[in-house]
Design a protein around this nucleic acid. Sequence first.
DNA 1: CCACCTGTTTACAACGTTGGAACAACGTTG
DNA 2: CAACGTTGTTCCAACGTTGTAAACAGGTGG
Lengths: 341, 341
Amino acid sequence: MGVSLRDVAQLAGVSVKTVSNVVNGYAHVSAATRTKVEQALSQLGYQPNLSARNLRLGRTGVIALALPELDAPYFAELSRSIIKVAAEHRWLVIIEQTDGSLAREREVLDGVRDHRVDGLIFSPIAIGADELAARTDDTSLVLLGERIYDGPADHVAIDNVRAARDITEHLIGLGRRRVAALGVQDSSVSGTAPLRLAGYREAMAAHGLPESTAEVERYHRAEGASAMARLLRSPSPPDAVFCFNDLLALGAMRTVLAVGLRVPEDIALAGLDDIEDGRYSTPTLTTVAPDKAQLARMAVDLLKLRIDGRSDRPPREVRADYRLMVRESTVGRAPTGERPS
Amino acid sequence: MGVSLRDVAQLAGVSVKTVSNVVNGYAHVSAATRTKVEQALSQLGYQPNLSARNLRLGRTGVIALALPELDAPYFAELSRSIIKVAAEHRWLVIIEQTDGSLAREREVLDGVRDHRVDGLIFSPIAIGADELAARTDDTSLVLLGERIYDGPADHVAIDNVRAARDITEHLIGLGRRRVAALGVQDSSVSGTAPLRLAGYREAMAAHGLPESTAEVERYHRAEGASAMARLLRSPSPPDAVFCFNDLLALGAMRTVLAVGLRVPEDIALAGLDDIEDGRYSTPTLTTVAPDKAQLARMAVDLLKLRIDGRSDRPPREVRADYRLMVRESTVGRAPTGERPS
DNA sequence: CCACCTGTTTACAACGTTGGAACAACGTTG
DNA sequence: CAACGTTGTTCCAACGTTGTAAACAGGTGG
């Protein structure tokens, strides 16, 4: 094993506790002993055994981040930010992937009780709001996504309904009339799809335009591509499509371009997430850009509050900002500026 | 705090060790006590405190994965696989981001000694091979990337020289003569860039073609775009470019298309990594596809061997397979099949 | 010279777990 | 029936750390 406090104490000729005091910067240690101990410390290359410290203190300094899949760019980018912000609190981050499976989501939610992590940031897909609300475990929890029902956890998200309405309005404002929504999901699945659909509907209704939707199971490029193909085969194909995330939009763009249609001249496309791919696709992708750094900071800070503070506070719901990023996929070359939201 | 063995023992009317025996499936426990204990176990909802177990056993069941940045798709995809394979060994994965900074890489390499993780899978960029070799810590370590000098760690990688040669040969085989290499890096930085450059040179030399290179600092889309712009401004612009990774290639593609040139008619583009973006870009991206699932499995399995077995074995270097994925960015529409390598 | 501070150091216990030794109960064997 | 093995259970110690309380020095003030 490694070097323990005992080894250092022995070498320095002091008690174990004194070494511990030096390590932890306790005030009342004489200069003489301090230097003596510090010398022994560095001579042996002491490194605290955090397993032991954790056992003693009941804190691990590790949090878990549970999300559907790490290789979806949105989650990769968000994870990056969360790890960065967590590091500011000297936290390490364990990443768990649920693949959107109910069983895995339950496992993760339950596994948190093994005292390996101090808290959990969780982006649920399959698990029901009621099941979340019924959670008995008191490990700190912050959810990514808007609050559906009441529950014991804090929530962090953008205003999905408003964002969806904004981007749909943008499409309508371009003069498009057959605006489709791509990314609708079975409503039994909780999550953001129904919210984005609601925003789309509000905008369409406000202009008296007919709705048109395409369902998908998962938010991947492949599904965006096939759903777009279905829309193209429909009796009245759309002249604009709001895809519920950027991956769907990029898949849809592939299909549109592959059949020889032009974006945005024939079909305008917009997404949501502002993943980096969309800034380099041809054409570049108009999208809603959630402030991911802010989301990350909010999530970590809320978790910090839960972990440090009393857990009896009422759960909070905080909203992150977003911006509309107008790019070539809706307005063509010579892009206009980006307007904040 | 949570429920401890003591609580369960008290309820079941047995000793703490007996409960521990039941929990750990120890053989010699009478059926009567076993059921009694199991009932108490589930009644209280016991969950082992892994901090304590770790302290006792000296194993945490957690490994660390250190890589430059999680939001580079290649690393996101690889991380996904590594987390999945690690889960088969009941390991959790902590992800650390180094941003390619030397200081961060040292921190990570050093931080592993705090007994929080059983081992480390590390994708270094900045740190020198000599420094790695001089490591004294005996925590198990597996490196992602080819071995440069000798060192105490196992290595996992594809054969970068051969892969680079293969893809360059593919470009030459299309009849291109002004084939450029995009992604050259200052050789002080260790890593794969020099290997890929070597493979490119071998192929060009074999055909007596003149070399042409563009340097970048980091392997991002933005740098691919600007490096491509530089190549276009040169006296004899290339008719094909081998980009050292897919992100660079996608950035380069953006630049080529944005100035009104066609891919692949005017300039053929190829990358390396086979990230998902390249399968949906327009045109789709020809690339080298490392077998990421295999890479992940090799890395985790090697780490497992190190952790379980004696660490005195000589370090091993294993090579993962790769395939050449020929897509539209080099051969245009009506894609040919993909040939294995 | 004693009581009483102040500052520094130490002994002890505890966090929850598991390996090993010890022990008890039981049946088997010579 | 004594000696012995087998099976089931308990007791004790230890992993390395830190909080608490107590011990110890060295002054000060009465």
